[in-house]
Write a protein that binds this DNA or RNA. Structure first.
Length: 220
DNA sequence: ATCCTGCTGC
DNA sequence: GCAGCTGGAT
């Protein structure tokens, strides 16, 4: 498996992404929920709205009226359910750990913490893993729609595999390294957005074209 | 399989 | 105009 090689190709093409773009752990949690099926650009606006009101704070999100929260996060779309989801995950964190910062310090087993997050309504596998990796610094590989698309086009996976199966493929073929996990997923997103697009992929310029049979590039 | 939503880029 | 977006629940 050449997953590490692909990582280095992406890294030398795009450079370090230094994900996740956030000032605090809790801001990562908020971003992870808000970006569900939503482009980051729109999430930025929602987070800006929250920052203006100094709301990137677990207690304040719990205190704020849900209708007001909906208005503030509106730019991120799906604001009705996302407001509830933000309340849900925040309530879980505060009730059990006091704060995201505090949760990050606790020596809870990764699998246990993951199951716990998945029990929060509105937190699925991808959101849970994003929180674990980027907010809590836990070594877990995040799989998203870009990951599935890119690596099925590359032929590394078939495409129909389940989330955790794909996650295991990455975890078993990469060094268990936080930095690599964080950067790799960020690089995958970058490639998916600008090159390995759903339609009209830019295969000619793709840094992985040498490894990929998906496109119909001439003389390949 | 469908619903939930605003916004950007083409 | 409308496809697509760092999904999840029903």
């Amino acid at each position: 498996m050449e997953l590490l090689k692909i990582y280095h190709l992406l890294l030398s093409h795009f450079g370090y992404q230094n994900w996740w773009p956030a000032e605090t752990r809790y801001e990562v949690v908020i971003g992870a929920v808000l970006t569900q099926n939503t482009s980051w650009k729109n999430v930025e606006k929602a987070i800006e709205n929250l920052k203006k009101e100094n709301l990137i704070d677990e207690r304040k999100i719990l205190e704020i009226d849900t209708e007001k929260l909906k208005k503030l996060i509106k730019p991120a779309g799906f604001y009705n359910i996302k407001a509830e989801r933000l309340k849900n995950i925040t309530h879980h964190i505060v009730k059990n750990y006091g704060s995201t910062e505090n949760l990050a310090k606790l020596p809870i087993k990764l699998e246990d913490l993951r199951k716990e997050l998945l029990n929060v309504k509105g937190i699925g596998k991808e959101t849970a893993d994003s929180i674990l990796l980027y907010a809590l610094d836990r070594p877990i590989f995040v799989v998203d729609a870009y990951t599935k698309r890119i690596f099925s086009r590359l032929g590394v996976i078939e495409g129909g595999e389940e989330y955790d199966e794909i996650r295991h493929i990455f975890e078993e073929n990469l060094p268990k390294d936080l930095k690599i996990y964080k950067e790799y997923h960020a690089l995958i997103v970058e490639l998916g957005k600008h090159y390995c697009k759903k339609r009209n992929p830019a295969c000619e310029k793709c840094p992985l074209s040498d490894l990929c049979d998906y496109s119909c590039l001439p003389y390949k």
